[in-house]
Design a binder for these strands. Sequence first.
DNA 1: ATGTCTTTGATTCAAAGA
Length: 276
Amino acid sequence: MRIASWNVNSVRTRLDQVLAWLQANEPDVLCLQETKVSDDLFPLQAFQEIGYHCAISGQKAYNGVALISREPLEDVQVGFEALLPEDPQAPQLSEQKRVISGLLDGVRVLNLYVPNGSSLKSEKYPYKLEWLACLQRYLAVQEEQGDPLCMVGDFNIGLEDRDLPDPERLSGTIMASNPERTALRTALGDRLTDVFRVFEPSSGHWSWWDYRSGAWDRDLGWRIDHIYLSEELLGCATGCVIDKQPRGNVQPSDHAPVVVNLAWPPEEEDDDESWP
DNA sequence: ATGTCTTTGATTCAAAGA
């Protein structure tokens, strides 16, 4: 099973690039963030024409997430409210469309667009921290349900200094401050592992390059797009890569896709030896 | 340092968000 995550910064502006990437890479599920389109205007037909199903949760102009899958996903859930019906903060934190999940072959694929926060002094920064605290409560319920979890998305956090291009200058600033790093680590708990780091421990691997200041040409990016796996899936992971190629396109997204390959479902036990 | 790109909404741009 191949699962990918890509912040496309407008699915309509990037439609041809997304379709071409799907056809070249053939993931079972592509998780999109920042689709920036209301559900009635989502380009469903273009995806259907190349053999993909869509589960979407969008809004006008900002945010928006989608699950593009080879097979239709089961039990699609939208927003924090789906798992937290009694939570006092979940309804307000679900107004911005940032959370969608679905089941494929018994795997819960959860696609997130974590708030950016803007700056430490912005009112969007405490919103980001509240959102991450709500994610922790959401994941606790998800764990109770027992499905293996693949959680992907644009986390808007460089969790460790090796995920930043200039840690001396940038650690402590937005996307690398201790409160947001701690909030994400708390939500992850002991259950979820950043699978990219299982295969690639070194710095210098980025998933986002700012449009400004020639960041792409100077290769000054951040690794803020992540794939987290629960234990059952982590043992099945055969590779995880960031595909830099689309960032070099004309009129690119500022993010590159991240892809994980899983040997899932696990091979059946071979019973032949016990056969009479 | 206010850089660049996308969207919107009110009139060929400016504001907002990332």
